[in-house]
Design a protein around this nucleic acid. Structure first.
Lengths: 211, 211, 211, 211
DNA sequence: AATGAATGAGGGTTCATTCAT
DNA sequence: AATGAATGAACCCTCATTCAT
């Protein structure tokens, strides 16, 4: 009862993707995955060299897209070229600009990005999310300091802690959106998510008087 | 070498807390926990009926505090009694009021709350976080609708999706703060975190003109 | 891409020979062998019925040569017709005679003989080496007894044990030489090896006074 | 049905020793070993950390004895203090001296030494035998050269090859004796074995008379 | 002649839990 | 209160072999 190669391979990837999503890399068992794909463990190894290689097969393209995305902006000190928005008083502009920017820049991530973010513990990708968090944290921290956070938030340590918190949530939200939504709704959510953070950030440091 | 009952129990709880925090409930092994507590697997079962019961012992008090916190506000349709802030134009007030409210209202959560949020998969508490998310989601959704989100965000489905996203991050941030900080820094972070979400929310729906 | 039948067969034999030599029959894996031959597992079974048959294909000719060699001397009670040497006092003669005898008598063993000796565990040839050892043991034992070993070595049991030891080493050395050397160096080593054993044997039982 | 700790441990070691002896480290299966010891695989890991550690438990003492034996003679350039024998014309002396020397010097090797020699492939001890062979090879080579082997054996390369062959067999024979015999018979065999090699070596390079 | 999908048994290892002592 | 021996199921992975194509 042989099946065309690509069919079984896809069945394995599909089953694995679901299992990894539900339980994470380590807790998802190969037995469960092959069962979901309607084959046996022995046969699995005709398609992939190891459990980790299976994960990598699902994830690698998105990983490289992500890496490329980060590197193309690294060192430029900008927010995806949107720094001018920080000085834009009319918020109506924001939503438009951000929406457009996101659609243009965002690579066409597939299933992989979600696994990298939420199911990669135990693989060589387990540090990727934190890397992104650290990268974002730097941005947030710089903006907070630039606008005089010490007047509103507090000490440098407090500001740094808060920047850390913000970036963690920002990245997590990013991942959640990719997990839950796709197509236009995904773009829409990404826009609002970005907007929400920019507004929150500005509001936090901009308007307020503490006395 | 016998040890006073409470001491061993505490040693086990301490070791388990650390292990659960690092690896999560399922991946933390009993062998590792008892080793960390300086005793043996057999003896463990003199103190706890199972691995899950050990988890429960660490977590239960905080779980009940959390439940009580939610229930005491359930059905009141308020935000911890702070609804009036939504109509308060002076943001300086916000930080003061929120900071005070948090200190007053927040139960004295112990180590457990972090485990419930970040390490409870595989236990009967694994749904608690989502429950809280759902609870918060309702609040966010109501506020978004109340202020006419359809003008700014979009359809009801989009609004609901966004409310879901916000609440997920809100709760996650809440958990992160408890995980990372304690004492006054924790309160400070909680205040800023709340503030950030209120400002973001208001900004998103309040100020904007879309045309 | 099809290859002429004999070429692929030879490639498989070559690759297998190397693998068996390195790891022995059981630990050499078919996957490794077919990879080395540049084909696939499935195709392998077009050439050989089983892993064991592959081994046999490499080994059979040499096995039969060996069998023939033994049988042609069996029952004659001689040492390859060299018994007269035991009474030859001039050792210079020995080396010459032995060297010549070896070249003349030794069949043209191929790769197989080494595998039979050192890599046949798990095949039906795994007993061949021991058979040869037993055969040699008989010779050694007879010589030891003939020359009055009880005066020098000890009891019959001790003599037998020693004959066993000698023959084991003799055969092992024989195998080692075939494994490591070829051509003239092989003949040279075989001569010295034989010489060494004859001298050792003679010395052991000939000259000595034990009191 | 609990058994005293030492009993089960010994049963495991006994069963393992036999399995390793028969099949070697890699091919001996844990399932077979625990079955031989009348327990389960799970329980095995209450006694040993791994299959390799089990091997080590059997072998370590003998390994250290062997190491100590070698090191205590290393650099002295002697043959266990028996160099004078090479110039001793009366062979009757040899057997006596060697027999005494062996009994005195040989550490009380246990089962381990045989495993190290014949069943250690796949463990960290797999190189020990070759180390010993190389060590002996040096001795043999020096003696062969010292006595002018070029006159009798041939080129330096041939002499070296032969030294290699001799040492391999010498060590193998050493191992075989430990495998097959014990007690006084072991000492007896060791003596004859050593004697055999010394005689063979002398005869090979000297001009020997047999009467 | 050649491919590689499929199978089923077995490899070493870890796990939470039970229970005799 | 404490020990650790014992269990049985599950983990990822490798193997020789079969067979449809």
């Amino acid at each position: 009862m042989q099946v065309k190669k690509e069919e079984m391979r896809n069945a394995l990837i599909l089953s694995a993707h679901q299992a990894f999503l539900e339980k994470g890399f380590e807790k998802a068992s190969l037995r469960q995955i092959v069962k979901g794909a309607g084959t046996t463990i022995g046969n699995f190894y005709n398609y992939f060299d190891s459990k980790e290689m299976l994960f990598e097969a699902i994830v690698l393209t998105d990983y490289e897209l992500l890496l490329h995305l980060i590197r193309s902006h690294e060192g430029k000190g900008d927010d995806l070229g949107l720094d001018f928005l920080w000085h834009e008083p009319n918020p109506a502009i924001w939503r438009k600009v951000l929406g457009k920017a996101i659609v243009e820049m965002l690579p066409e991530f597939d299933r992989g990005i979600v696994l990298i973010f939420n199911a990669s513990e135990g693989t060589r990708f387990e540090g990727v999310k934190q890397m992104l968090v650290d990268y974002m944290k730097q941005h947030f921290f710089e903006h907070l300091e630039e606008f005089g956070s010490e007047k509103v938030i507090g000490t440098k340590e407090e500001t740094e802690a808060f920047a850390n918190l913000l970036s963690t949530q920002f990245v997590q939200g990013f991942g959640d959106i990719f997990k839950l939504y796709s197509g236009k709704l995904r773009s829409k959510m990404l826009t609002e998510h970005l907007l929400f953070f920019m507004i929150g950030l500005m509001g936090l440091i901009g308007d307020f008087d503490t006395d």
